Simulated assay, not measured.
Amino acid sequence: MTMSRPTSGSAVLAWMPWVAMTVVAVTDVWAGPDVGFLPLVSLGPAFASLVGGWRRTALIGAVALTLTVALGLYDGLFEGRRGLTACLSVAGVTGAGLAAAVIRERREAELASVRSIAEAAQRVLLRPVPRTVGPLRMAVSYTSAIAEARIGGDLYEVVASPYGVRVIVGDVQGKGLTAVETAAVVLGAFREAAHDEPDLVKLGDRLERSLSRELEGEKFVTAVLAEIAAGGEVAFLNLGHPAPMVVRADGTVDFAEPSSYAPPLGLGMPGVDGPQQYRVGFLPGDQLLLYTDGVTEARDGNGAFYPLADRAHLLGEPDAHQALEALREDLSEHAAGPPHDDAAMLLVRHQGGPPAGGRPRSSP
């Protein structure tokens, strides 16, 4: 887990109490008591309550009250009501700041607890893919469209089955907790069925049946299933999902388009005119990128979509994880502002030799 670092904005706010009190004190001494700046010393504890804890707020409040008393005596304000009024102003703001700091600390503790639970859910839902399965090298990237979130509606998984290495990348309609729950259903069904079903069509039917029991209304999940076995080919089953990109050893780029797209999961009829799997060559030196539409539909400031095929050269890095990170950073630079959709990418490299767990099978 990556620890968060203080932002530059938080660092500025941390210094603001001292800066504010210093400016008010210098101005009061230089301009004299007639300006009436003394009550502004209360800006110190007010700023402290924004980022500091209650102890720091109390400390700065005490310093502010001491400074107010000192300046009030220096200016002779306690001969009338102005000195007492300034002290009461600082004390009142300090009290309000203490209450705000306590409430904020409690909320931050609750948020930290929720984040820890979300990270635990991420490890269960989106488990790290294996770096190596036989001759295959794999890397994954996930960017959530929801600020501070680690998971969303995109999903991926890799399973080494008796029939070959099976992969799924999918995109749940919608966002939020409902999308996460749907993704959990799909992934749970895939992890079980990938070991049992003899081909991708039956695997897709199994996912459809599992999802149809859970979905309500007209929600759906687009997905692409891939099976990499011996024979120099990869089989696909595309359920309304963007076509995977295949980068050949010589640098040429192909998109594994199906002859016809099948309905997404949740909108199809299992076993009746269902989707058909298809195959494309996948030889040593080739790379396979499965992704969600959050990648190809990312727009720049001029409204242009991300040119994925033109960026395939970024996958030339020797290390698969560094290559995918270079592509993710380029995607982030292309997009104008924060992402509007989740973006998942799964890279599979064929280093040579038959995939583990696979066995030769004739094409359908």
Rank of each mutant, 00 (worst) to 15 (best):
V272K: 12
T143N: 09
V180W: 11
L155M: 13
D342T: 01
R123P: 02
G164N: 09
L283F: 03
G152C: 01
A46D: 06
G285K: 06
L50Y: 07
A262S: 15
L237K: 11
T222N: 03
G92E: 04
G152K: 06
D310V: 01
E218V: 07
G32N: 07
G204M: 08
L98F: 10
E181V: 13
A230I: 08
L50A: 13
G337A: 03
Y163H: 15
G352D: 10
G231H: 12
E214M: 10
T94Y: 08
R106N: 07
A31I: 00
P258A: 09
G134F: 13
A14T: 08
E214S: 14
V24E: 08
G281D: 14
A99E: 08
F236V: 04
I146A: 14
E257H: 12
L126E: 01
V41M: 15
V272R: 13
A344K: 01
D342S: 04
Y163M: 12
V224D: 07
P258W: 06
P270I: 01
R248Q: 10
P198D: 04
R191K: 01
E181D: 12
L125W: 03
V185R: 06
F282Q: 08
G170E: 05
I60F: 12
P307I: 11
M16G: 03
G274F: 15
V114K: 04
A312V: 13
R56A: 15
T66N: 10
V224H: 05
H321R: 14
V133S: 14
G83S: 05
S260V: 13
A91G: 11
P39Q: 02
V221W: 09
F78Q: 07
P318E: 11
G301Q: 09
A335T: 15
V272I: 13
P338G: 13
E333D: 14
F47K: 02
R81F: 01
A112I: 03
P39K: 00
T132Q: 15
E329D: 14
V246N: 00
H195G: 00
V35W: 10
M21R: 04
V348H: 02
P307M: 09
F78A: 11
V169T: 13
T296F: 08
A320V: 15
R106W: 01
L98I: 15
P45L: 02
D341N: 12
Q276C: 01
N238I: 05
L38P: 08
E157F: 00
V133H: 07
S4W: 05
E105T: 07
R166F: 11
Y261Q: 09
A326R: 15
Y261I: 03
K202H: 12
G271T: 00
